[in-house]
Nucleic acid binder design. Structure first.
Lengths: 190, 190
DNA sequence: CGGGTAATTGAATATAGTCAAGGAAGGTGG
DNA sequence: CCACCTTCCTTGACTATATTCAATTACCCG
């Protein structure tokens, strides 16, 4: 997982609903979800809750806290969860000392920016059909035709902002039209 | 504009439709749009074109190319455009020499990741009403109530993935219900 | 003024969402 | 090895909601 593997993270177990940090707290570092899900929320003046981001397994969150004094949102476990904490001091020290570490983190963030922008662009497409095709093209491997996926179709549906039903239907239609063909674990553009 | 202001960029003028770089080209560096719009696209085997990202004025793109050998999409000017090119060698050298520059760039990318994830989360909300409220809460300034905006409401509508009409209607309804109040240039949550 | 864009509202439509129900697949325990 | 359970996948029918098309008003800038 890059440069930060040199840091031994602190493992924390969270109960469902437990708060990891709250807005206004001094920043302690950033985190990675091991299991479960953690939601970042901001509370409006009236107590209204707005989700900023939900981190699932292997996803990092609060990276920007390395460069801020205080957290500006709350982190709450949605379910029972295990998170790895990368302390601010150790992370910054590593970034200051080790050129490789620095570039690795920077490169990783640059890649994230790229993929996030691509995902956001996919979301701009209203038509389910076109959105699915855009996703498939974006995810296609080297040959530009094959899309391999590890998880379930459900997960993909949610990732591109469609209900599973709408996604299933769209895939079925694309297959019927001969635009794609499906085998277990991967889809091929034709 | 952060650490990279120390680099004197190369200014390029592009005609509408002109290609800045193509997939497979050796990476030369990253870019910032000065005027016009540049679209990053990937071509499917059949010539189908899928947009990955569209960069407008003051937006950077292809930052990740600093850490890659070759571009993996095409950059094409949508309209006549002026772009600033930050050469790879100079950028990496600066990152290698100057600790402040490194942290600055990393911090900037971390912030981008944060805001992009927040935007993506807003898009997950189906209801126009709830999406607009989430956007307002996320954009609210210090006091958590006031949202100032420079551009047009249209631009906001597009940014959160709604048609201008849907956005106007939603704002009108929120105002009628007393959830918000509007004055020229800013909105207040009540 | 006048031209252009933004803002606003109305009405009809289309499309994805929702609810529902059945089948397939995979895993667990007897 | 089978029964059972859970989750995913699939399809159908209906609905809700945002989009689309359209027409009017407000606003800014030359």
């Amino acid at each position: 997982m890059g440069p930060l593997s040199e840091i031994v993270p602190i493992i924390r177990h969270l109960a469902a609903g437990e708060t990891l940090f709250a807005a206004g707290d001094e920043t302690r570092g950033f985190f990675m979800v091991r299991t479960g899900r953690v939601r970042l929320v901001r509370f409006g003046g009236d107590g209204r809750e707005t989700a900023l981001f939900t981190a699932g397994p292997e996803e990092r969150f609060a990276e920007a806290s390395l460069f801020a004094e205080r957290y500006h949102c709350d982190a709450i476990a949605l379910s029972e969860a295990v998170v790895a904490c990368f302390p601010k001091a150790a992370s910054l020290a590593l970034l200051g000392d080790d050129a490789t570490a620095r570039l690795d983190l920077t490169a990783d963030l640059a890649r994230q920016v790229m993929t996030l922008r691509a995902r956001l662009t996919v979301r701009d497409i209203r038509s389910a059909r076109e959105r699915v095709i855009a996703f498939l093209v974006a995810e296609a491997s080297e040959d530009g035709r094959t899309i391999a996926f590890d998880g379930s179709l459900r997960d993909i549906a949610v990732a591109i902002g469609l209900t599973p039903e709408a996604f299933y239907r769209t895939l079925a239609r694309l297959e019927a039209q001969g635009t794609i063909s499906r085998k277990t674990g991967h889809i091929v553009l034709t």
